[in-house]
Design a protein around this nucleic acid. Structure first.
Lengths: 225, 225, 225, 225
DNA sequence: AATGAATGAGCTTTCATTCAT
DNA sequence: TATGAATGAAAGCTCATTCAT
């Protein structure tokens, strides 16, 4: 199994979950969702008005409420599917086998994950922004996030770390929770800078990724090439 | 100059800027600000209503608008002073002298800064949360943040890094912008975990700080003790 | 063409422009307009509250703003159509032909116009009152009035005066602007007395009209019968 | 008695009543009144806010209410004195003697009155505007106006007309009420044109006055010189 | 006499949601 | 399924007025 195959699997997982949602949508409904994503991410959930969403979707106000009982249900319908797509690559069955077959070193693994998630994040930037913005204010969202994302990813990370620690490539001192937070926050930091603070400033994505990987690897006491 | 003195300076800077704002406030106005901070951080700026703010402040709704022309002005009056307090420790005159007199190693310096900012952040958690939540939606806030916080802190970090790089304690490969983002995002990651995601889970602050410092030091290629 | 026909044309013009406005109104919207006319003319635009308008219209307050973005738009929607109706009789194509066919003397013409406009004014008293009251405070209204009413009526009056001056029935010394103002202000003076100052005092409309016509005719140096 | 003396009397009457009002005013109160006159005439009574009045007067909000119990009392304090000044020249004792001594012809009299009132109106334009605008909406104002202005001026006009009718200079057919309305409305029409509709257009005051006098004289069947 | 902070009722306007068509 | 008129609660904000200083 090589990187090409990996990408295909990921692709496939994405399509799968995406289709589940969108397959049975009417054209109007799709427009509503798209318009909602735009406006939620532009002005925030609370400041977005259903009438503006309807207008930008080219749809009557009432139509939104035919598909979603409340404005909040519309939010959840947008943000919940993202979560499963977010964890998809970590849920492949027989993960460890995949791992050992595929990534000789922790660095290889890390690079694969980061590149993959950067791809993903770029595609779903708006919805991710909505999710992160709303988690602090919506307890049910927070709960769903911890259960559906936090827990499974957490346990995967644990397995992975043990795997590479036993291979002697990773310091045993660092706790998996800390490592997860460390990785997640540095990645999200990169995103905050590139997409939120300076969206107009051009950047060399490859270089930034390399740099980031070095920071994480060193930080976690893994030997770089 | 020792840590004790450092804390005193910081203290003094804080008081100074705080007093400027609050000195001439009436009792009611203070209540309004406090109530607004609470509610903005609980439900977000857009979802907070001036009537609820007034109610919790024990004040008539009109009173808010006697002191602040608009709801947004109230937001800014809360969030703008935070910025100057945020950068205060970096603006001390003769910073380099202070530095060399005080911190032998980069690690010492890093520890001092992180502990200091953790102190600060704990004290001002709510307002920081408001600021971060609103920056993506308020262009003027974002601009003010970049100018008043980003720029000065950025140039300080540059000086500091050169200083310790020349002392041979810091890898020369890392760019200051990247370093700043790296440090900021790991620190904020810690905060997001401890205060937003699991505010009820007890934690050993000292241990977390030590851990964080090691991650940063290693990540940036500084030799740990 | 006789007076009967003239009245029919006028009638038709009225209906025409009225229908344009009201045809596509919902029942509720019509109630809103009616109620707004009443209340604006009773207390003045600024002192009228949308909530009172809604209440008297038997409609929810929000309904007003579904049809008119602002209170001012509601005012304009009431007052603007009046202007076109006000000038309608002066805009008939081939006016001069009508004139010569119809009115042998200036007095006849004057009598026709005055009676006609008194009819009109009685029907639209409230809206006229609103218009006159608000013109001094709303620059856009004033502009619209001058362009849509002042200019066309002015140039018609000019034509008419030349016509009767050449017939030797009208002094050539008087300027058309002055004549227009003279006629308009005496007519409006009559209205102010009868409808504003003493609305409860009964009056002989025919006698008052005759009297008024004599005053104007003599004032303008036209020979009375 | 000549025109010079007449002017002096008028002057004196004016001062007298003016002083009554303003003599005991503090500087602040005067500023309040001036500011109120400006703002009432600019935006209308209902749309003027006491806070704006206070601000333009350079006075605290509360100060207004120290002098005037309510906003309406402020309005009345401005508009009521105008009424007495408006009728002052008609109330001179022994009016008929003055008349016969002074004005040989009705035209002379008319010219004197009109010139005098134009003088007056120019000086008090703003307050007159306020009065006229508010009369339709304030029953007590209307009542005061009819009693203090309408009645005395009406009876004076009656005397005057009889006087000149007996001198054979004035048609006996016209009713004094009608004559009063006719004169008032043509004068006010001139004012509306010159001060409200086209305040920026320059005009020859003397010519306009002459023209107006001719219109009135002819209209009323008085022989012009 | 003058201030200006405080009030609470009321303002215009927006909003999420309902429902007859 | 889709519409859009209608709703009424609630939003942000203004206002005339009061009162302790």
């Amino acid at each position: 199994m090589n990187r090409q195959q990996d990408r295909e699997i990921e692709q496939w997982l994405e399509e799968l979950s995406a289709m589940e949602d969108e397959r049975k949508m009417t054209a109007k409904q799709l427009q509503i969702v798209r318009s909602a994503v735009d406006i939620f991410s532009e002005k925030g959930y609370a400041a977005a008005s259903t009438s503006e969403i309807a207008q930008r979707a080219g749809v009557a106000e009432g139509t939104i409420f035919r598909h979603y009982k409340t404005k909040k249900e519309l939010l959840l319908s947008i943000v919940t599917p993202l979560m499963s797509r977010l964890v998809a690559p970590f849920i492949i069955r027989n993960f460890q086998a995949v791992l050992s077959a595929q990534y000789e070193t922790f660095e290889e693994f890390l690079r694969a994950v980061i590149e993959n998630r950067i791809d993903f994040a770029r595609k779903h930037m708006k919805v991710i922004k909505i999710l992160i913005q709303e988690i602090p204010f919506q307890p049910d969202l927070k709960k769903a996030f911890l259960e559906q994302v936090g827990a499974p990813v957490g346990s995967r990370i644990r397995e992975i770390m043990v795997y590479y620690q036993e291979k002697g490539q990773l310091s045993k001192e660092i706790k998996p929770e800390t490592a997860l937070r460390f990785m997640a926050s540095t990645i999200m930091g990169l995103f905050a800078e590139k997409f939120l603070l300076f969206p107009d400033r051009p950047w060399d994505e490859q270089a930034a990724t390399d740099e980031l990987i070095q920071l994480i690897l060193h930080g976690m006491g893994a030997d770089s090439k």
